[in-house]
Each structure stands twice: as C-alpha cells, then as structure tokens.
Design a binder for these strands. Structure first.
Lengths: 214, 214
DNA sequence: TTTTATTAAACAAACGTTTGATTAGTAAAA
DNA sequence: TTTTACTAATCAAACGTTTGTTTAATAAAA
C-alpha cells in the first residue's frame, strides 16, 4: 500500500499520540487536530480508527522487515560477535522507533485486542526468537556457547531490558544526574550504556569462558 | 482508608479490566456490570473513575510496603545470597500481582497521565533501586562484587525481564510447547525458569568470580 | 429519625462515523 | 476551444452511541 503525504502525516501523528496516551485514550479528533486535517479524512482514507492503527502496524513492520536476517547470514563473524551485532541492532531499532515500540508493547499487555495486530506481533516475535535460536545453536556447535541456555528467556531479557529502559528513561536520567545533557546526548548515552551492559551480561552467561578456566 | 466488601469488589474488578483493556479502554459501566453493582456506586464510593484507580494504587502499594526492606537488613546472608533472595521476591511480587503490575507498567508507558499515580510509582522505583544499590555496595565492600556495575541497568534488567516475561507468557508457552500444563503448573514453571535464568545471569556478571580465576 | 446504601433515570459532553455540499483538477465530448 | 462529465479531496454539520457523572427517589441500617 502506498500512502500520500497527508496520509503519512495522519499516521505519524497517530503514532505519536497512541504512544503518549494509548489507542483508546486518543480520539480521532485529537489526531485530526494535530495533523491539521478534517476529522472525516481519517475515515475517508483509512476506513476507521481501528484500520488506522492497522495501517500504522503494516507500514512500520514492512519497513523493518528482514534487513537483519541477511546481515546475520553472510557474515564471517564469530557466534559471540554476531550476538553482539544483534544486541546493537535491537537497541537501535527500539530506540530509533520509540513511539511505535511503545505502542507495540502496550498491545502485548492487552489480551488480544485486535487479531490483525496480534498476528503481526506474533510473526515478528517468532522471527526474532528463531534468529536468536539459530545464533545460539551456531555458537554451541562451535563450542563457544554453553549448552544450557534458555533461548526464550535470553530473548525476553534482551527485549525486556531495552523496552523497560526506554519506558523508564526519565527516571534513569534523574537518578543518574544526567539532566545537564541535551536530549540527543542523553539518548546516545543511554544507547551506549545499554549496549555495554547487555554485552557484558550475556557474554559471561552464554559463553563457556569461566567454565573452561575451571 | 478502610474499604467494605462492595468497595473491594469494585476495586478488584476494576483492576482486572484496567489490566486487560487499559484505563481509557474500560468504562465505568463495564466495571459496574462485572462487579454486579449500580453504575452510580462508583461515583458514590470513590468520587470518580480517576479516583478509583488512585484508590487501587494506594491500596496495592501500601499492601506490599517494606516487607522486604526489613528482611534484607537483619539477615546474615552473603551479598550474593541477598541478591538472589531479592530476585525471587521480585518474581513473586510481580507474578503474584500480574494485573496490578500490568497496569503499573502501562502507566509508565504513558507520559505522566496522573500526578498522584506517577508519584506512587516514582516513590516505589526509588525505594527499589536504592535497595539494590545498597545491596551491591555491600557486596563490593566485601570484595565479592565487581566495581563497575551500573545499578540502574541491573535494576532495569531485573524488572524489565520479569515484566516482559509476564507480558509475553502466552507466546513463551506456545514456543516452548508447554500447552499440556495446567495454568497453575505453567505459572510455577515460569517462576522457576525465571528465577534460575536471572540468578545465573547476574551471578556471572556482578561477582568477581571469573576475574579471580584469571 | 437520621444516616447510609442503592436504584433508575437523566444529563451534558465526547465519541467514531456518515452525510451532503463544494472545490479543484482532469478527461471526454461538443 | 469550449463545454460537459467525472473523480478525488476537503469541509462543516449532523448522526446515533457511549462516555462519566449527577439527581431525585426509595430502601435499609443505625
């Protein structure tokens, strides 16, 4: 589906408002006002408020589809290096699309509100966890990774940490006295700290490192 | 504040519905119907829908207040043992009150919807992260823990993992072929796996263990 | 009797959506 | 070239519902 400038404007405003106030907490009049269009244009272009959020999901999910999969395949990196690349890509993806991933997280908290969206999310999650599974198995066969890794929970910690860090970034900023930084500087800082933290966290747990040393 | 049976019934139904459909997505008529009371009883007892969710927060937050703090103080456990006790207590608290913590996570995703509730959450988060900070410093002074631990991000990983695991438990269940378990069995299983996973994760990263062995 | 609890009905406001009219641009017919 | 026909975009207004809350009357409890 191709969208014209006005349609994209509506989608982008909707994304920001849904992220800030939730789907039910945002009225089509809110969206219309901020996007500077007539209320009826939303029904006219998308059919309904429900179809609008579906259009948002369809747009954002096809955007980010499978860039990573190919990158993971053809590389000559070690399993751990691949895993580190993946960590950074998750951080970049989530921090670079905070509004959308905020909406997506909220949707996961609701018990199956919309079949269409649930299906999008399930598909995305399945692809991600399968990717991690393959990466870990690769490392295990090379003898680099431990055998007793719970793939689901490694995935959960990775996405859970990044999601929660984004959700609570205001608290993080205050608690660590980073209010003197500009917004961009703080975002970069958080990215780096998250990257370092997660790489450390997983390195010592999924590799055989300290087992060999015994 | 003391609540009678009918008030508690309203609060509990509201908690379940807010958790399932969000605050804005739940109408007072929904709540009244499921709680089997007249719509006007909500205004009568709580003043407004907004005050109802504030009452819910006040109730649930005073319930769980500071049981843990005392337990942490007087114990003769090692720093790592204390940390493990803390991990289990977080898992128990969040998994034992999934509806409420679902609501709380949702509130954190919204940018400061209600000052009262934001303040409750900020206070709780501050106490939790300070508790972890003290625990980590204790371990560092005993020489058991590494010096370069980011307290905020350790906290983020702990709460982020448990929150996200709860939010995506249906997916976890399917992906790991655990549909044959009863709901209770699955909950117990998830608890155990989470506990083991998080203890492993943190043990290797926050202790000096494999540094000493070098 | 006074206070508390409960109800059905009513309220204005906000909701998502539809309507019918109008505009501007393009294509077809004269 | 002028006229007619058609289309997509836009709008203010109105539609019927649902929203949270209040009211006024009644029942129960103190």
């Amino acid at each position: 589906m191709e969208y014209n400038a006005k349609q994209l404007q509506i989608i982008e405003v909707a994304e920001r408002l849904f992220s800030q106030k939730g789907f039910a907490g945002t009225s089509v009049r809110d969206i219309a006002q901020e996007a500077d269009v007539n209320v009826s244009m939303i029904s006219y272009y998308f059919g309904s408020k429900e179809k609008l959020i579906e259009a948002l999901f369809q747009l954002r999910m096809t955007e980010s589809r499978s860039r990573l999969e190919t990158l993971m395949m053809l590389s000559e990196l070690s399993a751990l290096q691949k895993f580190n690349v993946f960590i950074d890509s998750v951080i970049d993806r989530l921090m670079g699309n905070q509004c959308f991933h905020n909406i997506m997280l909220r949707e996961q908290l609701s018990s199956e509100r919309t079949p269409v969206i649930s299906e999008y999310i399930r598909g995305l999650k399945m692809r991600n966890v399968e990717l991690i599974k393959r990466m870990i198995h690769e490392g295990q066969e090379a003898g680099d990774f431990r055998k007793d890794i719970n793939v689901s929970l490694v995935t959960t910690t990775l996405y859970g940490t990044v999601n929660y860090a984004i959700a609570t970034q205001d608290f993080y900023r205050i608690f660590n006295n980073l209010e003197h930084l500009t917004d961009d500087e703080f975002q970069a800082h958080l990215r780096n700290e998250l990257s370092q933290h997660l790489k450390n966290l997983f390195k010592s747990t999924i590799t055989n490192e300290h087992h060999i040393q015994n």
